[in-house]
Simulated scan of single mutants.
Amino acid sequence: MSANRTQPGAKRRKRRPDEAMEEALTAARQLLLAHGPAAVTLANVGREIGMSHTNVIHHFGSAAGLQSALMGSMIRDLTAALDTAVSQLQDDAGAIQPVIERVFAAFDEGGAGQLAAWIALSRDFEHLNPVRQAVLDLVAAVQEKMGDAAAARIRAVVYLIAICAFGDAVIGPPLREMLEQPGETGRALVAQLVPALVMQPG
């Protein structure tokens, strides 16, 4: 069903500016996950939360402003998920599997896969800058946990986890259906590969 045919959202009501912006960003994220980037428009968001097109413009300035705010919100969530993964690695000697689960969840349920695809298609890679330190912290945490493994190999392992989580979130469902694979196939394969890659000699 097209996002332009969604049922009207909440009735129009008064709300504080911060409440209105938070509701708008929540609706925009839901539209992105359900219908893709093209659905994230001022009109669609306004319809979902019972706010006029003019009021949405008032809060975000333009469609580009709304989209940029949504990207920023989702990037913060992804960074928080990576930070949690780092803490988990530091506290739990057997945390590689949970870390893989957390990264896959961030890209799938958290929407980071759709976000990354959107950023790639729009070429707005500067939006990824806030993630940089979280990714480097994750590399450092894996390095500390794995001891003698080479730093370059650890970076490659983190890349493998992230790129597989991204692909699984964006194109995984139809591919799994074609190949008659269960939903956890991607993360299970990565969980099998990572220890072997980290511990291989040379």
Rank of each mutant, 00 (worst) to 15 (best):
G186K: 03
C164V: 14
I119H: 05
T84Q: 14
H127S: 11
L175D: 12
V194R: 06
G36P: 04
A117I: 08
H127V: 09
L189W: 09
G186C: 02
Y159G: 11
K11W: 11
A24F: 01
A85L: 04
V135R: 13
A80C: 05
Q88R: 14
P37I: 12
G61Y: 01
E23N: 08
L128W: 02
G50A: 01
A24C: 02
V170M: 04
A116W: 14
R47H: 10
L82F: 11
L31I: 04
Q67Y: 01
R187I: 07
A196K: 12
L32F: 00
S68H: 09
E144P: 08
A162L: 15
Q67A: 01
A93Y: 09
D83M: 04
D77W: 07
A28L: 02
S122C: 09
G50R: 00
D77N: 11
D77P: 00
D83C: 01
R155D: 13
N44M: 05
L138Q: 03
L82Y: 10
E180M: 09
D18Y: 12
R13N: 08
E126P: 09
S87E: 13
D83T: 09
M51N: 00
V158S: 03
F104I: 01
G46E: 01
P8W: 07
G94E: 15
L138K: 03
M178S: 12
A39D: 03
T41V: 08
P182V: 07
A134Y: 05
Q30Y: 08
Q114T: 07
R176H: 12
A95I: 07
I163W: 06
N129L: 15
V56H: 00
G147W: 06
S68N: 10
E184A: 10
G111M: 02
H58E: 07
S87C: 10
R155C: 12
V86W: 02
P98M: 04
Q67G: 02
G94N: 15
I49K: 00
W118L: 09
G9V: 02
F107H: 12
V99Q: 05
L121Q: 15
A63K: 14
E180V: 10
H53I: 06
F104G: 03
V170Y: 10
D83V: 06
L189N: 10
N44Q: 04
L179K: 05
S122D: 14
